[in-house]
């Protein structure tokens, strides 16, 4: 088992590096070098470990964080640059491909949802929990 662990140790470190530095210009060749793997072998092992290439993973992490920032109120342009993309059109295109709607539409939809949650929170909690836990009698606003 230890051999198998060791095999993935560097790959896991590369993934964690991406998690921490997704907003920086990341050079995947450098990561492969620092893991002491050839680029080809690095990509193959990364796919074996996580089911996607490091490049696909980096894009996903960036889009995921862009979603978070859009929900927090950032503009599309701000979120685009904040997560490490360098072009708004390519960010918008990729966002739409991953999330099924444009960043602007996503932001609007999430804003409406948050407003609904604030106005009618019980609509978002299954009634059985509300009854069993007597939430309506609590100091729930």
């Amino acid at each position: 088992m230890k051999q198998k662990m060791y095999k993935y140790k560097q790959i896991v470190e590369a993934k964690l590096f991406i998690d921490d530095h997704y907003a920086d210009p990341i050079n995947l060749n450098q990561i492969a070098d620092s893991a002491h793997y050839s680029k080809f072998h690095f990509i193959r092992l990364f796919k074996l470990a996580f089911g996607k290439s490091p490049h696909q993973y980096l894009r996903e992490v960036r889009i995921h964080n862009a979603c978070r920032l859009l929900i927090q109120g950032m503009t599309v342009t701000e979120a685009c640059y904040e997560v490490g993309f360098d072009s708004v059109p390519s960010f918008t295109h990729l966002f739409k491909k991953c999330m099924g709607s444009s960043p602007q539409r996503f932001k609007l939809k999430q804003k409406r949802k948050l407003e609904m949650v604030e106005k009618k929170p019980f609509q978002f909690i299954p009634n059985c929990f509300i009854q069993n836990h007597r939430l309506k009698n609590s100091n729930f606003q």
Partner: peptide
């Protein structure tokens, strides 16, 4: 998970307490 050795390694790195190794 897809790959238990990688997932185990990652969660250990993050401080998750395991009671059984893979």
């Amino acid at each position: 998970c897809k790959n238990i050795y990688a997932t185990y390694q990652e969660l250990k790195e993050k401080g998750v307490e395991f009671t059984k190794e893979p």
